[in-house]
């Protein structure tokens, strides 16, 4: 089995150096991954599936990850000479940088033909999280992505171009939002139930008329 660096170099040789980046994983699992440029992703996927040395014919897992915009504060230290001739001062300047967020689709590939025990992980990223959320669908390459990409579309809102049947799969068709996004606000209009938690109770109460006397007893009142 080739190492991920070798696979990356071969992809870069065939599809251009900009098509693939190695994403390292600092955790103990050390499952590194390849970030593919979305314009070449389907061709690279076909290459990974059909290459005789790799034969990644089994796409085990396809899933989405949401990376919201993140504000990164960078502190830079500069040394400024004192105009009066004294010792130089160290000035700290803090710059705020907005790291733009994206939606990510992650695919875990294995080879059933070669029985590879370790996955080859590929990732695709959308341009942003709001208006440019299209990615090429890999369903034409691996049929197992069909339902999983529908699920990603449903829960994360990534639109897969070239998917044969891109509809909501777990939520109902009329549902508006994408619940797995990190900024999703869950509804609080559940049926009024006296749970022991007052904040839940308060939020739910706002949606319902004042309950009748038999159920107004809040859990605060102990018998």
């Amino acid at each position: 089995m080739e190492t991920l660096e070798q696979i990356r170099d071969r992809i870069a040789a065939q599809f251009g150096a900009g098509a693939v980046t190695l994403v390292t994983n600092p955790g103990p699992a050390a499952q590194h991954s390849l970030l593919l440029a979305s314009h070449a992703a389907r061709d690279i996927a076909r290459f990974l599936r059909d290459d005789p040395g790799l034969r990644l014919d089994f796409c085990s897992n396809a899933t989405g990850v949401d990376w919201p915009d993140k504000e990164i504060v960078e502190t830079t230290k500069t040394t400024q000479p004192d105009p009066a001739g004294g010792p130089a001062k160290v000035v700290e300047t803090k710059t705020k940088r907005l790291q733009p967020g994206c939606l990510e689709a992650v695919y875990h590939l294995y080879s059933m033909a070669l029985k590879s025990p370790a996955p080859v992980i590929i990732r695709l990223r959308t341009v942003n999280r709001t208006d440019d959320v299209t990615l090429p669908s890999l369903t034409p390459v691996w049929r197992s992505c069909e339902f999983q990409e529908r699920e990603i579309y449903d829960l994360y809102g990534i639109v897969f171009t070239g998917h044969p049947d891109l509809r909501r799969i777990l939520m109902w068709d009329e549902f508006k939002d994408h619940p797995m996004r990190k900024d999703y606000v869950s509804p609080d209009d559940y049926e009024w139930e006296p749970t022991p938690h007052d904040d839940v109770l308060e939020r739910a109460k706002a949606h319902y008329p004042a309950p009748s006397a038999s159920t107004t007893q809040t859990p605060e009142v102990t018998k």
Partner: peptide, 30 residues
């Protein structure tokens, strides 16, 4: 520690895998 892992076993119905991303907090990021 921050990082990610995909672990899978052969469960009675097939491959059951869990893909976890940690960002160092007590809850999984993904």
């Amino acid at each position: 520690k921050a990082g990610e892992a995909y672990g899978r076993i052969e469960c009675p119905k097939g491959e059951l895998g869990f893909y976890l991303i940690s960002d160092g907090t007590p809850n999984p990021y993904r």
